[in-house]
Structures are given as structure tokens and as C-alpha cells.
Amino acid sequence: MMEEYPIELTINGEKIVSTAKAEESLLRFLRRHGFYEVKGGCEKGDCGTCTVIMNGKAIKSCITLAGQANGKEILTVRGLEKEESGRKLQESFVQHGAIQCGFCTAGMLMTAKAYLDENHQPNKVEIRKAISGNLCRCTGYKKIVEAIYAVAEENQKSK
């Protein structure tokens, strides 16, 4: 029972051993440790900009206690490059014009990655539902949905 407690987790394949404050969110913990690519937009779970993948599942890091990531594997947008499926999504977002201000992008990509890992043949309506926890104010979502759909299609073809 401590105000600060030890924490050990893997972020983008790298082991981090540190301490966290009791009420510290995973978002704040990540940013305090230099993972600035994880953005905060509301800190209440209402926008999804802070989305990371924790043990394979996309979650909102602002409503996750740092301690809840103890012993877990975290993937942020900067770790996406290490995996082919991640790189494909990044490039598809770039090519489709799915990125405007880019503030939602880091979270949106993580949601898309976790979703496509589990769903191989989604249609566009399903993709819209899948990313409905990630707000975007710039694009109207169309090009984001197209970018994700293109990767899903490509994955199907290469199978």
C-alpha cells in the first residue's frame, strides 16, 4: 500500500522498470517516461486519442491505472513499425489522406491494429463501429475507414 509503487512493464518490446504514483493513469505514466506519441485529449475516456494496445487489446490509457499495466506488454504507435501489420496500416493512412491534424492518429491506428488482428474480413460499417471509441474532428472518418478497409482487403488477397 504505497503512494508510489514499483512497476515493471514492456513498452514496444523494451522493458521499463520504474515507479508509478497511486492514482497515475497509464497515459500520464507513459508520457512521463517519454512516450509522447501517446496523446491526451480528455483524460476521461471520452475521446480515444490515448489508445494503446495492452496485451493485444486496444484500451484507453487515460482510464487505466499505471498499475494495471504492471507485467503487461504495451504497444504504442511508435512500436507499430516493428510489425508488418502495423507498418501497412501506417502507410495506408498516409496514402489515403486519413491524417489531417494527426492528433487522433496515434490512437486510431492502435484501435485499427488490434481490430484487424482479430477481424479479417470486416466491411466498412463494421470498421466504423470498431473505431467508434476514437473521435476525429478533422476527417469525418471517411478516409480513415477507407485506409483500414484497404489493409483488410490487402491482407485477404495475400492469404
Binding site: 509522447y36 506519441e37 501517446v38 496523446k39 504504442t76 504507435v77 511508435r78 507499430l80 513499425e81 501506417q90 502507410e91 493512412f93 498516409v94 496514402q95 489522406g97 491524417i99 494527426g102 492528433f103 492518429t105 496515434a106 491506428l109
Partner: peptide, 16 residues
């Protein structure tokens, strides 16, 4: 064509 800033944003490298 892809925007000049798009890649850095997709990689999480752009510093806001």
C-alpha cells in the same frame, strides 16, 4: 499525394 507531414504523424514522431 501524401502530405509532407503525414508520415511523421503516422509514426507518432511529430512533436505537438
Amino acid at each position: 499525394i501524401p502530405r509532407e507531414d503525414a508520415r511523421a504523424k503516422a509514426k507518432g514522431e511529430l512533436k505537438y
